[in-house]
Design a binder for these strands. Structure first.
Lengths: 214, 214
DNA sequence: GTAATGTTTTACCAATCGGTCAAATTATCG
DNA sequence: CGATAATTTGACCGATTGGTAAAACATTAC
């Protein structure tokens, strides 16, 4: 008889690891392009190449898949912000933060869209994470930025809105990819658009945050 | 007997106008917070305070409601960009564009989220509009910006990514509202956040686009 | 008023939704 | 090998999905 799923964490089979990975991979595709409510277990099962009951053997509910996916993404997603170093050179830190966020938008667009879908729809599953760990991390880094401004290393500015604007501009290239491609047109929409974006954003932020502005 | 719905455009009843308006208003609520696939006709009918068959008397399909909603929003959404004036003062034009986009994010967040949901999910219903009218409008305004740069009125920069970045930063306050509120916390999340955002963005862009940077 | 038109409701449909169950199958271990 | 545990399947469930048919009801035009 099958072990009840609650006790499964004790030792994980090779098959378990493989299948769970395949399910999460498929679910990332589906959830990121249809949102939670718009996705169905059948779609995920199809994409993972297995039957629905088989999928439900590994994850009890649709919510369980989504939850695990979101938890994973949330962690890796904040990695660049965590790397923000108070001891480093402000210009270099901000520049490298922008570059890393842009690389993530380029290399992990599905993860970005999964997250965007969740927030757009009111973040029903992760409000606590936003108000807790995320807020604390941003508060900490905002203080770093404020200290840089006080020390005269960058222009005085609202650190929260600075962070928001970097999030917005970089993730835009993942979340609004279709629009970006449509506007740039076929010729200009090659992967070069990420380099162009990086150049533009670095220019904008380096000049915009330079000391001694009105 | 009821007139076939295809012929209804001839003359519109008072009741027709009222009900259609109520349906679109309700649908804006529902679609903007659940996306197209995640929304149901029942939800919209409930929100509009009428029965499902009654709603379907005015709009034949779910798609028809969504389509009309998107068409409306798309038009008003581009109004600020259309107002971009080649003859005006570059700094003032950009500043006022940012301000207007920010006001729209504040006053019409549902419209912004409807649009974001659509793009996020691959823009299945409006790809043509993006590649056609939208691209043309952006192309035109990009040329204006390039001319300003050539005339030495603003720093040389990629006009497309400039526009993208303004879209991203302003719409962020509508689309990612939950996250913005969560991070700012209860005290700072009053409506003042839009003024803070405006101040930050104007500072960023005015300094960032100033002539004579590296 | 009455006839034609416009609107709303009730009852319903097939398809799909998330999820369960027991039986059949396969892998693992001694 | 045999036994035991892990995995997969097919058949199924009640609820919900988008949408229809027809009749009841309301409104308008004459």
């Amino acid at each position: 008889m099958a072990i009840p799923r609650a006790a499964k964490t004790q030792r994980r089979t090779r098959i378990q690891e493989e299948k769970e990975e395949r399910i999460l991979e498929a679910a990332l595709d589906v959830f990121s392009s249809s949102g939670f409510r718009g996705s169905t277990i059948d779609q995920i099962a199809d994409a993972a190449g297995m039957s629905k009951p088989n999928l439900l053997y590994y994850f009890r509910t649709k919510e369980a898949i989504h939850r695990q996916l979101i938890d994973r993404v949330l962690f890796t997603w904040l990695e660049p912000l965590r790397a923000f170093d108070a001891e480093g050179d402000p210009e270099a830190e901000i520049r490298s933060y922008i570059r890393r966020k842009l690389e993530m938008a380029r290399d992990f667009p599905r993860e970005s869209r999964l997250f965007a879908n969740e927030i757009l729809q009111g973040a029903p599953h992760i409000e606590d994470e936003l108000k807790g760990p995320l807020k604390e991390l941003v508060d900490e880094k905002a203080e770093v930025i404020r200290a840089w401004a006080r020390a005269g290393k960058i222009a005085a500015c609202d650190p929260y809105h600075l962070i928001f604007s970097i999030w917005a501009t970089t993730q835009h290239y993942a979340d609004f990819d279709v629009q970006v491609r449509a506007v740039l047109g076929q010729e200009a929409a090659g992967e070069g658009r990420f380099e162009d974006a990086a150049r533009f954003l670095e220019q904008l932020y380096m000049n915009g945050l330079r000391v001694g502005a009105d």
